[in-house]
Write a protein that binds this DNA or RNA. Sequence first.
DNA 1: AACGACACCGCAATCGTTTGCGGAAGTTGC
DNA 2: GCAACTTCCGCAAACGATTGCGGTGTCGTT
Lengths: 337, 337
Amino acid sequence: MKSGLVTIKDLARELKISASTVSRALKNHPDISEATKKAVHELAEKLNYQPNAVALSLKQRRSNTIGVIIPEIVHYFFSSVISGIEDVAYDAGYNVIICQSNERYEREVANSKTLLASRVDGVLVSISKETEDFSHLFNLRNNNVPMVFYDRIVPGLEADQVIIDDFDAAYRVTKHLVDSGRKRIAHFAGPQKLLIGKHRKDGYIKAIREAGLEVDEKLIIEADSFEKARLAVMRLLNEKRDFDAIFAVNDLTAIGAMQTVQKRGIKIPDEIAIVGFSDGRFSGITDPTLTSVDQHGYEMGSIATQMLLKRISAEDDTYPFETRVLNADLIVRGSSI
Amino acid sequence: MKSGLVTIKDLARELKISASTVSRALKNHPDISEATKKAVHELAEKLNYQPNAVALSLKQRRSNTIGVIIPEIVHYFFSSVISGIEDVAYDAGYNVIICQSNERYEREVANSKTLLASRVDGVLVSISKETEDFSHLFNLRNNNVPMVFYDRIVPGLEADQVIIDDFDAAYRVTKHLVDSGRKRIAHFAGPQKLLIGKHRKDGYIKAIREAGLEVDEKLIIEADSFEKARLAVMRLLNEKRDFDAIFAVNDLTAIGAMQTVQKRGIKIPDEIAIVGFSDGRFSGITDPTLTSVDQHGYEMGSIATQMLLKRISAEDDTYPFETRVLNADLIVRGSSI
DNA sequence: AACGACACCGCAATCGTTTGCGGAAGTTGC
DNA sequence: GCAACTTCCGCAAACGATTGCGGTGTCGTT
């Protein structure tokens, strides 16, 4: 049915005045007499009139909506980013449409299409792991859709962006391990086509070199999930590789590693230290608790949204792109002491 | 600027034909000649024409969008519900607008208003912990917005709903503890004004009674967070209450309890068994691993969405409301063996 | 009496798209 | 040669709201 919703015309008909007058009365335009205003407001209240945001969007050519493309909200980091986004957007009177790419390129392209079709006023984007072709994003750009990238940015696409200093954080993680006496530190790396994966690995390498240690390629393994970590650890152990620490590209990977190590009867952190990345809600509940890096997801979401709103409301849309680099905090816990 | 986006009129002007013809050509209307269709399609492709979904919504009086009101997406359960929702909606060509209430009543009311204003075709609702006044939801109902409630439903509001059998699940959890020989089982309960809190407690009580044990009110504590669990455990221990198991209303509460118990040097599960609820991604990584109840969030989201889509496309909007009760699976792990 | 000032309100166009209806050509049949 | 079809396309209204412009009616002033 969907017949219900009362429109401005309904009010006009009921009061025997024009729709224009109702519209003006509702926003207290000075041209309208107090008596009319009162009548309109009262009827609107009584009939529970809600302005049709769709009609408004069409007329104003702005939807007061921002779109978000996000890889997977099941991760603590990303869902806290969303909270940061929502809070800022909400306060500014914006709605948020969230699209999950599920880490899939195709889905991400579809997402960018629907957001374009919905005429969102701007988008916040973090690309999927699969994404290598960025034409859908350039397409948004070409259509003058304000854009801010967060966390996973696109190399070669100039835009506002907010990231954390992955390189520095990874460097500090590794240095922390070095300082605690570890000599043979393995790295479970993320996909090297994602900048964050590359930066974290580079930070790791810098710290290793700086400490005068050897970078052993056999100790650098691309493994970025719970399951891959299990396999990687088993391989390392079966090959009898010598290592006394693991720096994993994210917490789940670290935890997968931790479990597998423990199942072999190896003590953490005595024999092997483990550090994760992107501190989640649960890094405090493993045994031992997991040293990790707090990525400040909420803050990232809120800052990205502020940047986007600024870009949206800028008359001069050519002011230079801005890159905000957030500090990530190393949180030392039981797994590396 | 936001000038860019090409419209049907732009295509018409370029090809010196009318907008009507362009519109029909784009959807292969038989009235249009092949030559014209070809020209239109080619130009549309070239100029990267994207139909304006806003105009469409206004014209069709349907937005192909469904709204979701959700308490907090940082929880694994809720974010997997969203994934289930998105997948089904996506396949049916619907967009999803997600609104977090952050467990706050006021925010939930605001959410329902924006969804109404956005003229979503239907809404999926799970109410916040604070919500006691349901007039905003009755308001949606009065405006003929199709609605499906999931997980946290509204007593007294007849509607489609999908829930899990909390009572039965809690009963089985408690029975499992009884069967393993526990006699003094504490319950960390959720807010009793939420049905799920009440049902879980009732299931607990039934199992206790059925086993011929005594229901000790001192062992039933309203505690539904990590922190509250810590305090509750400390109080129980300080008061030297006798108990050999804790059934917590959710996993985080269980984990808070587990930690606090362990810090006192008490062995789990030997001296105290612990069971959680709403199995998250991390119940497998505590030490010991946590016995819990898998609530099948993804399935709940996908079923709720299917029910909503069915309701939306129903010509006859008076077919009886349906309640789907999903089974929850008890997953026994190390914390209770 | 005539004119200007003011208060109040309606007409109509607009945003982008769809769609019923009608109309101008061209084709066929007899 | 003319009626009757086809084929193909455009006009205009509609969805709900906003807004520039103009119109009506009532006063007061000279």
